[in-house]
Design a protein around this nucleic acid. Sequence first.
DNA 1: GCGTTTAAATTGTCAGACATTTAAATGTAA
DNA 2: TTACATTTAAATGTCTGACAATTTAAACGC
Lengths: 246, 246
Amino acid sequence: MKIDPDNKADLSAQIAEAIREEIMAGRLIVDERLPSEAELADHFEVSRPTVREALKRLAAQSLIRTARGAFGGAFVNRLSYPEAYGQHITTSTLLLSMNAISFDVACEARYALERACTPLAAERRTPDMLATMRAEIHRQGQPGLTDESFCASDVTFHRALVDSADNPVLSYQLAGAVEAMQPLMNMITFTARSREAIVGFHTRIADALERHEADAAQTALSELEAYTLTLGRDVMAARARPRKPA
Amino acid sequence: MKIDPDNKADLSAQIAEAIREEIMAGRLIVDERLPSEAELADHFEVSRPTVREALKRLAAQSLIRTARGAFGGAFVNRLSYPEAYGQHITTSTLLLSMNAISFDVACEARYALERACTPLAAERRTPDMLATMRAEIHRQGQPGLTDESFCASDVTFHRALVDSADNPVLSYQLAGAVEAMQPLMNMITFTARSREAIVGFHTRIADALERHEADAAQTALSELEAYTLTLGRDVMAARARPRKPA
DNA sequence: GCGTTTAAATTGTCAGACATTTAAATGTAA
DNA sequence: TTACATTTAAATGTCTGACAATTTAAACGC
């Protein structure tokens, strides 16, 4: 780890990249301690603040963690699921919100991925997960619920559906697709009738999973997708129309 | 954006988090310029190096970009697909390599997600994408190919399959699942016979997509999954057995 | 009017210092 | 000997002040 040519880019970025590659390649393993900031500064022939900026970059990606005090320092961090979830959700959300992704495209991706989980979920769903889904369905039927709370409950329901597949890698990958849709969904006004319809779909999905019927669950999911699409399209059409209606 | 209580955590982490929330909430919009480092230091009542560490954290997540010179500064960055891809792949790869994820679990997730793309890919596949798949299949049949190159070609083939669904959000989400498997796949020794089998599955998939037959493609994918699983299990079993066989 | 120069603003980097935290080593008393 | 308090050393966290490099806009000269 001593590559630093006559590059023009920021030194801190180069140093961060050099260390990152060491970690990605497995040459720095989990919980291994990096040299101290002073030693790194000496090694790369830069000042300590520059090294620190590089380390902060790595810390922001959860690649390292730091500890103060004697025998402290920077350590290669074991990327935990919560950390990975958080980063994935952040990235996915920003990607969708900043790139004018159409509601249709995001919706299609989300439901396609969720359907992928359904066969596994139908096979492995636990009473616990079913109870979570039922609870959220019940919450979604409450009259006083705000649109935002309804959306949040919707996310919780779908996450339970995904988690029912009992595959942490799948849950991780899906987290981005499901959570990133929330800002888009939050723009929708859920009327009493549309809520009723959605609760109906959710109930069909939960029922199907309970009976281990993957196909029925997939069908319900597809119909929910189609229904969501119509709700979203109305919103997007209204948004595209700048002339405000009185 | 002026929240900084008597928290114990690093100031640079707090400041980064405060700015990150502004961006995520949309209160700082794309291409908007942040205050200069000096102004931020003044605002948060910290020194400039501390502010800089915070900004580097954000830059590492592609949330901001910086420009030098007059009228330079830090700007909210529009997260591009390549940047999002890169971050997602990094995170996914590390998550798998550092958490003792079983080959089975990773494999199951990957193929479940790929099957989710198949119906769309069968509908929308372009001659271009088919040509890419055929080219990779041809490469995979070359005799002199190293295991690593075979793996790389495998990834390219599967990415073409995913991209055929013509949904950038789907491609982005899948990138993590497909690419992160590569280190695991690289541990496998692909014999001539296993390569022949895999090429056979790939050909069946490409043929099915060409004929717009989603079901046939999914079936082939499932069989490929099962076959990959047996290959992977052999490797993992050998790894788990420390007594070296002469 | 146009090209050149100058100035100003801003990030990038450096040096050195002090503050804070942590764990090990040491010392002390029951 | 054991338990507890103190010291010490190593490391990160933070600050101050300065200079370098870069980029744009304005001033200037022709």
